[in-house]
Amino acid sequence: MSSGRDTSPKPFGVVASFANPELLLEATRRASEAGYRRMDAYTPIPVEGLTDYLKFKDSRLGWITFLGGITGGSIGLWLEWWTSTSAYAHNSGGKPLMSWPMFFPVMYEATILFAAFGATFGMIALCGLPRPHQPVFNAEAMARASQDRFILCIEADDPNYDEKKISEFMKDLGAEEVESVMTTEGY
């Protein structure tokens, strides 16, 4: 790579895998109490309560969807108003040019369409996807994070990051396996 960016592997974090969500929840709670902040959990199913321990809160998606809906509805109604009253105004069935009741359905559909775009693409973008390869995939345990392992990762940019200490800590919490992960060469 000639970008001049340093792309050699760097420590990404410590990954610990647990057998069930209860152990993971407990580990996350304890890690949070121990002062770790830069961490994330990887699970095959949504685990309720995890985000509370991870101190994660984000309500932007609701607003994105809402704005999508408002945009869609406005565009829909504006389009109907503009085409029917000025761009291509003509009498049809004796109905008024601005036929409010009849312009409702298209406005409604446009609202829903744009709100759904907001919800879907907003979610994908906020999750940082699409990104088919992620550094955390370098962990062996991640192969089962989508199946039956519940994983906690404390990332290297945490101020309290200390590989050894964290590994010990995780083993005490009942982790099945603990490994340190490096980022991928070239990324």
Binding site: G93, G94, F104
Partner: peptide, 12 residues
């Protein structure tokens, strides 16, 4: 309410 109004308004 809307369906009833829309259908009757349109049928005229």
């Amino acid at each position: 309410s809307l369906s009833q109004y829309l259908i009757i308004w349109s049928g005229n």
